[in-house]
């Protein structure tokens, strides 16, 4: 059997794959956080809760309406985006003129409410969500077994991240968005409806989290606590990458997922803390983050 540093190749590749899967979710979630923060200057603590909502909406659709994975991949994120519209209109829009810390406190409270309700209704044990039939089975690549669904998750997350990046960097809507980030008053004066732009941005960010949740449902279980654990890791990812750049957030997400996977192979005790340790090191060397401009 082929070994690398005394670890068998399939085992190494297996952990790297898990790392890449986790990285895909980190990338999608930190992307959403960065999009929301860039425009609204709000750190969306409810991002984890919205990720969890995406997974639960997919599960609801399957369980109560018999609607399968593919339609759910569109419907559930739309549902979460709609929740996002309500949150932005009813709550967030009232605190834009306050210190940004209040945004964090408000969304923290919101996350407690949403996750608390689902925990109250569904307990802490997860609900299984089966892999769509198209992606049952696995590819045998010779040096490793690659389950089809996991390959799909990686490809899908790359597509999602690229699309979002193109939307913001290359379209007219994205240009409005970037302009409004720089100077909302001026953009408003040009006749762009900035409040609606803010609502839309929050909805997109929440929808991205929901989409990640649907993709995650077959990989992990659908559990009320699934977002709680990931959101703080994503915060660390965002601090490491620096929130200035969308691409930075995405790349950092993937890389840190891989690093976490590698740590699981070579020093498993540190696998849950390695991202935080990297955050400390980055802060000591480059406080603005790897891709941050300050």
């Amino acid at each position: 059997m082929v070994t690398v540093f005394g670890i068998s190749l399939p085992a190494l590749m297996g952990q790297l794959l898990i790392g890449l899967i986790n990285g895909s979710f980190y990338a999608m979630l930190s992307l959403g956080l960065a999009v929301i923060f860039g425009m609204l200057r709000v750190i969306n603590f409810a991002h984890g809760a919205q990720y969890m909502l995406g997974a639960f909406f997919a599960w609801f659709l399957l369980r109560y309406a018999g609607i399968g994975f593919w339609p759910a991949l569109v419907l559930a994120p739309l549902g979460v985006a709609l929740v996002g519209v309500v949150i932005e209109k009813v709550l967030l829009s009232r605190i834009y003129n306050l210190d940004h810390l209040y945004g964090l406190l408000l969304t923290f409270g919101l996350a407690l409410v949403i996750e608390g309700l689902f925990r109250h209704w569904y307990g802490t044990s997860g609900q299984p969500y089966s892999i769509p039939s198209t992606f049952q089975g696995a590819f045998n690549l010779g040096f490793m077994i690659l389950p089809k669904y996991r390959a799909f998750v990686i490809v899908a997350s790359v597509i999602v991240c690229l699309t979002t990046w193109l939307l913001i960097e290359k379209t007219k809507f994205g240009a409005y968005l970037r302009a409004a980030t720089e100077n909302p008053t001026l953009v408003q004066a040009f006749g762009v409806n900035v409040p609606r732009l803010l609502t839309l941005t929050y909805a997109i960010g929440a929808g991205l989290a929901g989409l990640a949740g649907v993709l995650a449902a077959p990989v992990y279980q659908v559990s009320p606590l699934m977002g709680q654990n990931i959101v703080i890791i994503v915060f660390a990812v965002v601090v490491i990458g620096g929130m200035g750049s969308i691409m930075g957030a995405v790349v950092t997400g993937y890389v840190l997922g891989l690093v976490e996977g590698l740590t699981k192979v070579f020093y498993p005790e540190a696998s849950s803390t390695v991202i935080f340790v990297i955050m400390v090191l980055v802060l000591l060397v480059r406080p603005a983050g790897l891709f941050g401009k300050e």
Binding site: H100, G103, F276, M279, L283, P287
Partner: peptide, 28 residues
Amino acid sequence: YVAIKRQGIYFAMITMALAQMFYFFCLQ
């Protein structure tokens, strides 16, 4: 020492991440 390198929201996120790191340490 680590957290005061950044301000505002970043300070909050960094302290949260550091505490979470300590949480995992205590767990293990």
